[in-house]
Amino acid sequence: MIRLASVTKRYGVGGRPALHGVTAQIDAGEFVFLVGPSGSGKSTLLRLLIREERASEGLVEVAGRDVARIADRRVPLLRRTVGCVFQDFRLLPDRTVAGNVAFALDVVGRPRHVVRSVVPEVLELVGLTGKEKRFPDELSGGEQQRVAIARAFVGRPLILLADEPTGNLDPATSAEIMDLLDDINQAGTTVLMATHNAGLVDAMRRRVLELDAGILVRDEHRGGYDAPATVAVSATVAVSATVPASAAPATVAAAPGLPGVPGVSGISGVPAQRAPSAGGFVGRPAEPVGLVGPAEPEGPVGLPGEGAA
């Protein structure tokens, strides 16, 4: 669904690239976390996928199409296949909940009867039935993010990109939003979520891509927020060949002794039918990441040979 091959992105001339030789593939239906410190290139990577930015080098493929080779006038069609959710929600304050969701369909020219039937469906999916006529400033942060997710999902995109969707939310609400994204993923949409929320990543145990200073230092299935020691070491070795040593070791230091995962399963208000998705991690909520060990070590991706370009 998404394929990156030796992708490098530089802003301006000179300076450190925001992304450096990133290679990764995400298949249809996957749920992938994108982690890494601020400025590590997470947002840049997401922006490349909707051609807000163009890669300086390398190949970016979305839904089987080389993004760089899409004609300008066809870029809107690419963006219709990719929904986006942000930390700051980006709702229109002068439109109601339903109006915000309908806006996404209106501006791409969907007929009125489609808008009328699809919007309530999506609002029901995100659990906002009954609040259609509210304005964003009358909603809680979690509800606003649900509206934003509804807007991103209403066009039934193949991929949902979420850039720090829980960054402004408290842990309990974050877990609800996480559940919602999980539901959307279960329904078949590929989800790529950039996040700093270690608790969620550790609780979900999904594939984790970790960026550090623009380099992909980890691609781990069923990973946690922090790298397991073995993987981290090999990543450090690989990274040290291509980037200044200062960037890499920081990720290793934090690995042991993770704080317990917040009780995601115990959140009130999460409907019972969401249990299956939550159940996977109920049994080991506070498992230290170090014990997960080298499960499927995809290995560091920033290999010197690929990344040196």
């Binding site: 809107p76 069609l77 929904g83 501006v107 020219g109 807007r151 991103a152």
Partner: peptide, 11 residues
């Protein structure tokens, strides 16, 4: 938001 959800330049 229009750009993001794939509205055409004309729209």
């Amino acid at each position: 938001i229009m750009r993001l959800v794939g509205a055409t330049n004309a729209a």
